[in-house]
Design a protein around this nucleic acid. Structure first.
Lengths: 355, 355
DNA sequence: CTGAAAGCGCTTACAG
DNA sequence: CTGAAAGCGCTTACAG
């Protein structure tokens, strides 16, 4: 019942091990006839290449890079720290994963970073992408070098990457809308929306999804035009305070982007029973705390840790030339105050543990 | 920068390869003095054992078993089919995973199954457990044989297993309660609860969590005593039809167990705008369809595919004697009609694809 | 175009 | 208690 090896195949095909190897690894320089014989033997015996053995003999080390936006951003800090906590573990599987900072969210920064990592011997890179054709040149250069590219959290143009690991932001926005809608229990209301910027594709997607559902299924709810906050907590706070004084009739608040600190500060001053229903994104120490204390109601979390783990295994599969383990698409987790991780700080930090 | 090998360690310790091997693998028969020298060299060089090489030379094959309840159950069918779809993929990593049917949910069936798989050469087994001390004997026997045991979906007594892969059902019940509560928008109401049986620990846990939150945070909501349905759709349907005729003032329905077909049939007859708010568990073709058509509102899904994948990697880590990849606890996904998998039937079935 | 041989980092008899 | 040697399934020069 044990798997046939390459030498079984070679034998059965009547050629040498080296020749069989040449055809299964497409190294060329093999007579048409030999190729055919080997191919036949392969299927006849049901040959399955032993990747572990191949990697051992080749001394393969998976060199991976994660291109993450620089700057003070709790979300990417969490990704960085998870990656860091994983490194000892990954080393045992001959995987090295390096986080590389990219300047701002601007195309220029990403472009130069992509160019800079060429010729550095990376086998795969996960990049927090941008929808810009300007990225075409540097990425194609990498691909020519045999580097595998995937989009992480925010996608690249589809034709430039082999996979996207992240959530469907339109669906996330729709989900937020549904839950906000449901929270009105059939009563009418007015929803106020905050977003980081119109540039950010993920924000635009969430907004589109949100509108779609509210307009279709909740005619009793009015939606204010989104206010841009640049993800700045101070801006968020000022905006929320101004609009929530009671005279505007706001019954729900949806923060599409970051800057939750400001939202939470503003909400904490209100009476829980009378404040608007609040939905935000990403479970962080502050949003977790706010949920526990009833300052906000729902957090839609994309699970950065899981995204990183998934990116890692997809990249490895790509490099090994095989399909990744079948797994369902990533769907964000909805947190309420009742399903929070046992010890929030611990849960956030446990990544830094090693084994 | 490359990792030191065992022969580096042996060299540096001034002993033979074989001796170094004996101490790192605790095979015994080594002089105290040699042991010390090797140990010192190990830490000095920062030796990391290459598991892949070890497995290759040992021709290790991971033989795993999944003990799943028999009988017509869509949930476990889905687990079985996912497992089946994975097998080609797993084979490439020298992993074989066999699903083994266990009679009913009774302790007796599980006990005899656990006894039956002893001496069969399994390295690890994931079992849909039961909280019964009767399982102690057969499990301890397996453990003595070096078999690693984990609980899947439903836990075993803690001291009998190395890990539990599944959701926190109390938290799931609390989440259901929160969302049901929120859906009333501050208005009062009455909630009707259906459960499979009082025996099932997961049902009991969900119920407890549900009560906890409603009682604490939603004094305006009354909760009927749970009705036991034996997870039978016919029973569920009859019960729902009886209670939803309008005269009972039911504003929400929570089905803790299975038998959703009955719930959906009953709901489909009602006007979406006036039917009670409906929450159930597990995304299946029927619940997915019901969500899309507005017959129910929320599905709390534990993600059996992800559970299986996780069980696999935890089992492998256990067998290799290392800690699993750090990953957050499993939290169920909340589905509404707006965040359903792209093609539901496809998504359910894609497991059967091979690579 | 083809083949024989050494080596990847480990384990497993086997002989002292 | 210790060591030399073959072998796991592959890849990589190297020699024809």
């Amino acid at each position: 019942m044990k798997n046939p090896t390459l030498s079984d195949v070679a034998h059965s095909a009547g050629v040498s091990y080296a020749t069989a190897d040449r055809v299964i690894n497409k190294r060329g320089n093999v007579a048409e006839k030999s190729t055919r014989k080997v191919r036949d033997a392969m299927v006849a015996l049901g040959y399955v290449r032993n990747v572990a053995a191949a990697n051992l003999s080749r001394k393969r080390i998976y060199r991976l890079a994660f291109l993450l936006p620089n700057g003070p951003n709790a979300f990417y800090d969490r990704i960085r720290s998870h990656l860091h906590g994983l490194s000892a573990h990954l080393a045992k599987d001959q995987i090295s994963a390096t986080a590389i900072g990219v300047d701002a969210f601007a195309v220029g920064g990403l472009k130069s970073c992509l160019s800079a990592i060429a010729d550095q011997g990376f086998d795969g890179v996960a990049v927090v992408g941008l929808q810009s054709t300007e990225l075409e040149a540097p990425i194609e250069r990498l691909v020519e070098q045999g580097v595998h590219i995937i989009g992480l959290v925010s996608d690249l143009p589809k034709h430039l990457r082999s996979a996207y690991i992240g959530i469907d932001n339109v669906a996330a926005g729709r989900t937020a809308a549904r839950l906000v809608g449901v929270s009105h229990g059939g009563q009418s209301g007015r929803i106020h929306i905050l977003a980081g910027s119109t540039e950010a594709h993920d924000h635009a997607d969430r907004l589109a999804g949100f509108y779609e559902v509210i307009r279709r299924d909740f005619p009793n709810l009015a939606v204010n035009d989104p206010v841009m906050t640049c993800d700045d907590p101070t801006v968020v706070k000022a905006e929320v305070e101004q609009v929530v004084d009671g005279s505007c009739g706001i019954t729900a608040l949806y923060n599409i982007g970051a800057g939750n600190g400001g939202l939470i500060d503003a909400m904490a001053q209100l009476n829980e029973a009378h404040r608007p229903f609040c939905v935000t994104h990403e479970l962080m120490p502050d949003t977790c705390h706010a949920l526990q204390h009833g300052h906000i109601d729902l957090v839609i979390d994309q699970g950065p840790d899981v995204e990183v783990n998934r990116a890692l295994s997809v990249l490895k599969a790509l490099i090994d030339g095989r399909s990744p383990l079948p797994a369902p698409d990533l769907v964000p987790t909805i947190y309420v105050r009742d399903n929070l991780p046992a010890d929030p700080t611990l849960a956030m930090m446990k990544d830094t543990s090693h084994d």
